[in-house]
């Protein structure tokens, strides 16, 4: 149980907030707004799952926000040009995977620090997009929104996709050799090399996967609105990293669970509606998010310190 202390802690806090809401503001639990809230957060969850893999593998990617924008705009333009929605979605995934592969090649191939590489690709992508689009919105054809289904059906579909990604990746991470290799490489890349694993390939693969998932998330976001605004996704990287860290994934690699990430993301997502329902001014949202991140890292630090003494 001690292994999952962080995940359990976050989940407990989340449940406490949800319970408070149930008592004080049952209106929070109305189906339609709740479903909308979850559907809005679903793309973030998909990116967060990918980010968790990257961070468990002891890397980081701060270019996902820019990737998200590029994939959104590209898929939007293709859809507007008359491509079938399914192809546009596939294109978003492919473009995301391509950028993930570029990050992965620079980090794994050249051995560059991931934070700087992805800082550079983040700036490059963002500004390249601005240059190409000049801030123009893309108006989407009607059949794109909710994939031509009803809003309820569309939202449900999105939630199912996000759920499938979460469960699938969580399973792979836990039960496939490939998943365990990510933990191994993140825990100690040199030991992994000595054990005959291929740390560079693992690093490349997690970046590739994160890119593809970011593309998928962009598509999931795209079908929720009638147009694409090019700034969509800015700031996504920090929100996603925050969710992953709050969810108990160690920034030093090798540790973490996807269900913790889910709890972390929901905790961040629930703050704003909770504030509204509890009649606290909504301007506090970001400050509270920051405080939660700090709290998470401080408790982890103190726990580690106490644990270290016990073991030594």
């Amino acid at each position: 149980m001690r292994r999952h202390a962080r995940e359990l802690g976050v989940t407990a806090v989340l449940l406490a907030i949800l319970a408070t809401l149930a008592l004080v503001a049952p209106a929070f639990y109305q189906t339609a707004p709740l479903r909308s809230l979850l559907a809005r957060e679903a793309p973030t969850l998909v990116v967060a799952c990918g980010m968790a893999l990257v961070i468990i593998g002891r890397q980081i990617d701060i270019s996902v926000g820019s990737q998200f924008s590029v994939c959104s705009v590209a898929a939007g333009l293709l859809a507007a040009a008359g491509w079938p929605t399914a192809l546009a979605v596939a294109a978003a995934v492919a473009i995301g995977a391509l950028w993930g592969a570029i990050n992965g090649a620079l980090v794994a191939g050249l051995g560059l620090p991931s934070i700087v590489v992805t800082l550079a690709t983040m700036v490059t992508l963002r500004q390249g997009l601005n240059l190409a689009r000049q801030g123009e919105f893309v108006n989407l054809p009607d059949q794109v929104q909710w994939l031509g289904l009803s809003q309820t059906a569309g939202q449900t579909l999105i939630l199912l996709v996000a759920g499938a990604v979460l469960v699938g990746l969580a399973w792979a991470l836990r039960s496939l050799a490939a998943g365990r290799h990510i933990y191994a490489v993140g825990s100690d890349a040199e030991a992994a090399r000595l054990a005959g694993l291929r740390p560079r390939r693992v690093t490349f693969a997690v970046f590739l996967l994160l890119g593809a998932l970011t593309g998928l998330a962009a598509a999931m976001n795209l079908i929720q609105s009638p147009q694409v605004q090019p700034l969509v996704g800015s700031g996504l990287e920090l929100k996603v990293i925050a969710a992953v860290v709050i969810g108990g994934v160690a920034i030093s690699g090798g540790r973490g669970q996807l269900w913790g990430v889910l709890a972390g993301l929901l905790l961040l997502a629930v703050i704003s509606p909770a504030l509204t329902h509890l009649r606290i001014e909504a301007y506090w949202e970001k400050a509270i998010q920051g405080a939660i991140i700090l709290l998470a890292v401080v408790t982890e630090g103190l726990r580690r310190r106490a644990g270290g003494k016990g073991a030594g």
Binding site: I115, L238, V245, K286, A287, I288, G290, L294
Partner: peptide, 22 residues
Amino acid sequence: LRLPPLIVTLGTYSLFRGLAEA
């Protein structure tokens, strides 16, 4: 507390901006 600066300042990144908004 010897916490990783990346995460600490990610937290204060949100906290400071949030305080400004509040």
